[in-house]
Amino acid sequence: MTESLDPERSACWRAYIESSQRLFTQLEDDLRADSELSFADYHVLVLLSEAPGQRLRMGELAGRLVFSPSRLTYQISTMQKRGLVARQSCPEDRRGSEAVLTAAGLLALREAAPHHLRSVRAHLIDDLDDAEVACLTRVFERLGRRLRADRAASSTPADHQGARDARDHR
């Protein structure tokens, strides 16, 4: 049996889980009220707006969003119906496809961004001092690196081939 957490670590874990869920819910609610975008919509638009040519291969986008291929396909399909993104064949590799930011998607992002930033500041950033910001950045960057490495180490070559096959047949 796994050893239980001491009271301090248990309190840390519970505080993290409860506050992160509340924060995400609040940010999502604010975003939807101000823009009719979901948090996932907004994140896709941000990543595409920052990418060269405002386009990313579906596999890369899924990895950056931490989405399964099927979840990304659904997300992009719903955004495509709303005119926020387009899906196109990769110019270099016709087997793959890319998500491409549309003019309507860029406009939606530009309109939503100031409201979202206000929400992020009000519900998180403005409540932290510089030392807390630096500490949280170090902690979450370290955890992110470790989790990405753990995931990469746990996937097998067959997993990679299956993901490529699934991507190429979409």
Rank of each mutant, 00 (worst) to 15 (best):
46 V>M: 01
64 R>Y: 02
46 V>E: 08
113 A>W: 04
38 S>T: 03
128 L>Q: 03
35 S>D: 12
24 F>Q: 10
121 R>E: 10
138 R>N: 08
48 L>P: 07
78 T>K: 11
143 L>C: 12
21 Q>I: 08
169 H>M: 09
120 V>H: 01
166 A>S: 10
146 R>I: 14
159 D>K: 06
18 E>D: 14
91 P>N: 06
76 I>V: 06
47 L>I: 00
71 R>Q: 14
16 Y>N: 11
76 I>W: 02
1 M>P: 09
93 D>R: 12
73 T>L: 15
92 E>C: 02
138 R>D: 11
110 R>P: 02
155 S>M: 15
149 A>K: 14
130 D>C: 06
31 L>N: 02
2 T>N: 09
43 H>N: 00
114 P>E: 00
14 R>L: 11
127 D>A: 15
15 A>Q: 10
81 K>I: 04
33 A>H: 05
55 R>C: 03
84 L>F: 08
44 V>C: 07
117 L>I: 08
54 Q>R: 13
76 I>A: 04
46 V>K: 01
51 A>I: 03
132 E>H: 13
10 S>K: 12
14 R>I: 06
58 M>S: 14
143 L>Q: 09
150 D>C: 12
95 R>H: 07
27 L>P: 03
14 R>G: 07
135 C>F: 13
111 E>F: 00
121 R>D: 13
22 R>F: 01
69 P>G: 14
153 A>L: 01
106 L>P: 02
51 A>Q: 04
57 R>K: 04
16 Y>W: 13
14 R>N: 02
62 A>C: 04
1 M>R: 15
47 L>T: 02
118 R>P: 05
61 L>S: 04
63 G>W: 00
66 V>L: 02
98 E>D: 14
47 L>G: 01
108 A>L: 02
2 T>W: 11
131 A>K: 13
161 Q>F: 04
25 T>E: 06
161 Q>K: 02
148 R>T: 07
20 S>Y: 04
64 R>K: 03
115 H>Y: 12
55 R>L: 02
47 L>M: 01
21 Q>T: 05
85 V>Q: 06
98 E>W: 07
115 H>R: 14
90 C>S: 12
65 L>E: 02
151 R>T: 14
97 S>Q: 10
57 R>P: 01
163 A>G: 09
119 S>V: 00
40 A>Q: 09
10 S>L: 15
69 P>M: 09
80 Q>N: 08
141 E>R: 06
119 S>A: 05
14 R>Q: 08
17 I>Y: 08
19 S>W: 05
164 R>L: 15
36 E>F: 09
74 Y>V: 07
1 M>L: 13
94 R>M: 04
17 I>L: 11
157 P>F: 09
163 A>Q: 14
155 S>I: 13
88 Q>M: 00
21 Q>N: 10
74 Y>M: 04
77 S>E: 14
33 A>W: 03
17 I>M: 11
14 R>T: 08
